[in-house]
C-alpha cells in the first residue's frame, strides 16, 4: 500500500511539472507585458499554442532524416525526466535517488546534444548558426553549472538533491559567501540555458540574432509543440532547482505524510510565482547582448562558481 502511495506521489510530481510548465512561461510573458504597460496574452495562451501546434500539419524539409523526427520526443522525454527528478513540493520521493544533480545537468546536456544535431540535419545555414552558437554557450555554461554543483555538494556533503534541500532548510547553513556566489552563478547559467534575455531573446523574429530559435527554425506542427513544451519544462526545471536549493521552505520532507504535501504544493506554486516575477523584471530591465559578449557573461558565471568552490576548499565554513 505504502509503495503504491509513494508511486502515486511520484506520478503526481511528474504530472505537476507537466501541467505547470506552460503556465509558468505564460505567467512570465504576462508579467513582462504588464511591465511594458501592455495587456499581454492570457495566462493559458501557451496551452492554446501547444494544442494549436498539435492540430497543424508538419511541414518537413525534403532531406530531413529520421533523426530530425525522433529528436523532439527525445528532447521532451529527457527534459521531462530531469524536471520530474528535482524535488518540487516534496523531497525524498521514491525515485529521487535515480539521478543526482550531476546526472540531471548531464540529462539536459543530452537534450541539447540532440537539439543541436537536429539543427544541422536539414543543412541550412540558420540551423548551423544556431547549433554552433548553442554549443559555444553550453561549453561555458556546463562547467559553470558543474562547479556550482561542486559548491553545493561541498556545503551539503551530497550531490543528491533531496539531501541538499534538507540541509539547506536546516539552521546549520547560515550565511555563506560561497553560496551567495553559487546563487548568482546559477541564475546566470539558468538565464543562458533557457535562452532568455540578455543571452538570447525568446520572442525575436530576426534569424541572425537567434540561437535557440534558429536551431528549431525547421520544426513545425506537433514536432514544434514537443520542442516548445521541452523549453517550457526546462524553464520550470531551473526555477524548481533554484527554489529547491535556495528557497527550501515549505518543501515536504522525506517520509512526511500526505497532509504535508498540500502546503508543499502551495509553497511551490508561490516560489514559481516569485521567481517568475523576478525573471520578468530582470528581462525588462536589461537589453540583449551581442553573441560574442555572451562568453564574457558566462565567463563571469564560471569564475564566480570556481571562486565559490575554491573558497570551500580553503575553509568549509565560508
Amino acid at each position: 500500500m505504502a509503495v503504491i502511495l509513494e508511486l502515486a506521489v511520484q506520478g503526481a510530481q511528474m504530472a505537476l511539472v507537466l501541467l505547470l510548465a506552460p503556465l509558468l512561461t505564460g505567467f512570465v510573458r504576462k508579467v513582462k507585458a504588464r511591465l511594458l504597460r501592455r495587456q499581454g496574452p492570457s495566462l493559458i495562451q501557451p496551452y492554446r499554442d501547444l494544442l494549436r501546434l498539435m492540430r497543424k500539419e508538419v511541414v518537413l524539409a525534403d532531406n530531413a532524416s529520421w533523426l530530425f523526427r525522433v529528436t523532439p520526443y527525445l528532447i521532451f522525454a529527457t527534459t521531462w525526466v530531469g524536471a520530474a527528478l528535482i524535488p518540487t513540493f516534496a523531497a525524498g520521493l521514491t525515485f529521487s535517488w535515480t539521478a543526482d544533480l550531476i546526472a540531471i545537468v548531464a540529462l539536459l546536456g543530452s537534450a541539447r546534444f540532440f537539439l543541436a544535431l537536429a539543427g544541422m540535419d536539414v543543412g541550412t545555414s540558420f540551423g548551423g548558426i544556431g547549433s554552433s552558437r548553442e554549443v559555444m554557450i553550453a561549453s561555458l555554461a556546463e562547467p559553470a553549472m558543474l562547479l556550482i554543483v561542486f559548491s553545493l555538494a561541498l556545503v551539503a556533503g551530497a550531490t543528491q538533491l533531496s539531501t541538499v534541500a534538507a540541509f539547506m532548510g536546516s539552521p546549520e547553513v547560515g550565511l555563506r559567501v560561497s553560496l551567495g556566489m553559487s546563487l548568482i552563478a546559477l541564475v546566470m547559467v539558468a538565464i543562458a540555458e533557457n535562452a532568455r534575455i540578455p543571452v538570447d531573446n525568446p520572442s525575436t523574429h530576426l534569424e541572425l540574432t537567434m540561437v535557440h530559435e534558429a536551431m528549431v527554425l525547421e520544426y513545425s506542427g506537433r514536432h514544434l509543440a514537443m520542442i516548445e513544451f521541452a523549453a517550457f519544462l526546462k524553464l520550470l526545471l531551473y526555477v524548481s532547482l533554484i527554489s529547491c536549493v535556495f528557497l527550501p521552505w515549505g518543501l515536504a520532507s522525506a517520509g512526511a505524510g500526505l497532509e504535508s504535501l498540500a502546503p508543499g504544493v502551495v509553497a511551490y506554486v508561490g516560489k514559481l510565482a516569485v521567481c517568475g516575477v523576478l525573471l520578468a523584471v530582470f528581462e525588462t530591465a536589461i537589453a540583449k547582448m551581442r553573441v560574442f559578449r555572451v562568453p564574457d557573461f558566462l565567463g563571469a558565471a564560471l569564475m564566480l562558481a570556481l571562486l565559490g568552490t575554491l573558497l570551500l576548499f580553503v575553509s568549509r565554513s565560508l
Binding site: M54, R55, K56, E57, V58, V59, L60, A61, D62, N63, Y73, L74, F76, A77, T78, W80, V81, F95, T98, V122, G123, T124, S125, F126, L217, E218, G221, R222, A225, M226
Partner: peptide, 28 residues
Amino acid sequence: FIAFSASAAAYVIHRFASHALRRGPAWG
C-alpha cells in the same frame, strides 16, 4: 524513464494530434 516518457509522448501525439505531414523545401 526516458524510453517510457518518449514513447508515452509519441503515443499521445500519434493518438490525439494531427497526422498530416507534408514534405517541402527547407525554409531559407
